[in-house]
Design a protein around this nucleic acid. Structure first.
Lengths: 306, 306
DNA sequence: GTCACACTTGAAAGATATTTTCACTCGCCC
DNA sequence: GGGCGAGTGAAAATATCTTTCAAGTGTGAC
């Protein structure tokens, strides 16, 4: 058990992940657990001082709930959460630069908007990278690399992410299609079979228009992958491999769709690079070929000279 | 006593003081206490994992000695020393960024790929934010906010960025169109006139298919904006306002298109937020309206309940 | 509307970790 | 050599953390 504690703690995440984890896992928690998680996220440094009993009291819950929350957050018990909290607080203190953490307000000057947006997206990237399950990624990459055919489903903002992935996969010689029309998506999904890959992108994890084709593909025996912010969503039921994106807090001016995109794109890039690595023989020449084919579409004024 | 513990811990020293303290206080310690202090100074991170008993065993001493050592070091007990140790280790680690700077190689394990990609994109974001000319952005935002009609041109990867922008602008009630077909783009550009905005997105700054429609719009008297990595490129000739994106180095596996996208999206987000701020009266209700309209497209399985 | 079920929750028992006590050892000085 | 005192660890005492379990609570089925 000590061994366990050690391992779990060692694999603790760097930096901001704690708050991200609270956000990501919050939906799967019960009300009182959420209260605890919230308190912890709100002031890690202070909570690191508290004993289970004290924290339970402060959040108006019981010791048992505190321990349960610690478990959900990925620690073997409260003791380890507490250590992580102390570490997190220290790290935060070390790296906290400015007040770019605040929400974007309606009357923020543009310079602030730029700074805050950049900061938030950076945060999102860090959170996503930290929260991504590499073994799931590995599995998804393997499936894609050897797929006979790849179908990608995404609606709205996620549709663009899907197109991005497909564009890239096409470049390295894979057969991929992006679908944002749910009917056509299902129609096409029927064609899939074992050895094919279907990939659904949905932030909410509950977008029916995307789940339906994935389900169809799943039923036909294709390998299914989901990129979602809610690994507990309905989409998970039909996904062989789940790639979790970070759920960053959203503000009035910055809808969820906006931040989820950053997260999704990072995952998509990882998939692409992974596939490119594993099909390097084919991918490398294909990449340079497509590169050269495009060259003449640029005016020759190119000072880049190439 | 609990109170005491709190205070003592709060006044903990920042940074490297731990090793210094061990050195300073070493003379006043007994032999076995020194052994403990030494072990702690040698590897704070590892010691943070150990219980009193474990640390006592490891240093060949007893629990009592460990506690005494903690006291000498200025903590009310071992528990607090342990917390401080965790914090210290984290802080130390924060200083050392890591070697994620290297290029992504063909044989990198996926975990590294994720880390490196995330890091590079973070870098790109920072560079873009730093290099963005806020006055140009301001001007572009003003033009968009009051535009009668907005046309966006982008090809390839940039087409997706354009679509992203258009999607968002439509959400807040603006009239915007994305064009990735050069012929149609030009055909549409002819319709533009003063009060309209044409926006071209091109990483290279020399994509003819995008420059052509922008030029047409420019000639027709529309306000023209360019989002490009090469402000000295051909596209600049026909752009009233130029928004510069960062040009990050590209590697074999990570083509320019990939990194430029991150950069372009940040700029696009800034544009959007800026416009949303300036048309808040109209934008806010429109945003929530589109949000609600979408709600029923999601399955009601929301596990958030309870 | 009522019942049954599953899930949530906190109280208290149980296990662990930390702190304190105390007796013993060892080295030193007389 | 014997007494004295600091240093030390074993074990008791306490604090802290974890688990269990029974009661509460809401949800869905009939």
């Amino acid at each position: 058990m000590t061994q366990n504690a050690k391992e779990t703690f060692r694999s603790r995440d760097t930096g901001s992940t704690l708050t991200a984890k609270v956000r990501n896992l919050s939906p799967t928690m019960t009300r009182s657990m959420q209260r605890v998680a919230e308190a912890v996220a709100a002031d890690p440094a202070a909570c690191a001082q508290l004993t289970v009993t004290a924290l339970a009291q402060r959040t108006g819950t019981s010791e048992a709930t505190v321990v349960r929350t610690a478990r959900v957050l990925g620690y073997p018990g409260y003791r380890d959460l507490r250590l992580a909290l102390a570490a997190f607080a220290a790290q935060q203190q070390a790296g906290a630069p400015a007040a770019v953490t605040a929400d974007i307000a309606v009357d923020d000057p543009l310079a602030d908007v730029v700074a805050k947006l950049a900061h938030e997206e950076q945060q999102t990237l860090a959170d996503t990278a930290a929260g991504l399950d590499v073994s799931q990624l590995e599995a998804a990459v393997a499936a894609l690399a050897s797929a006979r055919r790849i179908d990608v489903y995404g609606i709205g903002a996620s549709a663009l992410v899907g197109q991005d992935l497909v564009q890239k996969l096409l470049r390295i010689g894979l057969i991929a299609h992006a679908h944002s029309d749910p009917h056509l998506a299902v129609t096409n999904a029927v064609q899939l079979r074992q050895g094919d890959v279907a990939l659904a992108i949905t932030h909410s994890g509950n977008t029916l228009d995307v789940i339906e084709p994935l389900r169809t593909a799943f039923d036909r025996g294709a390998t299914t992958v989901a990129i979602t912010g809610r690994p507990d969503g309905a989409v998970a039921k039909y996904a062989d491999h789940i790639l979790t994106t970070a759920v960053s807090r959203e503000s009035e001016l910055r809808p969820a769709a906006m931040s989820s995109r950053t997260s999704q794109l990072l995952v998509v890039d990882c998939l692409f690079i992974g596939v490119a690595q594993r099909t390097y023989e084919r991918a490398a020449p294909a990449l340079s070929a497509s590169y050269e084919a495009l060259a003449h579409r640029h005016s020759p004024v190119a000072p880049t000279a190439r």
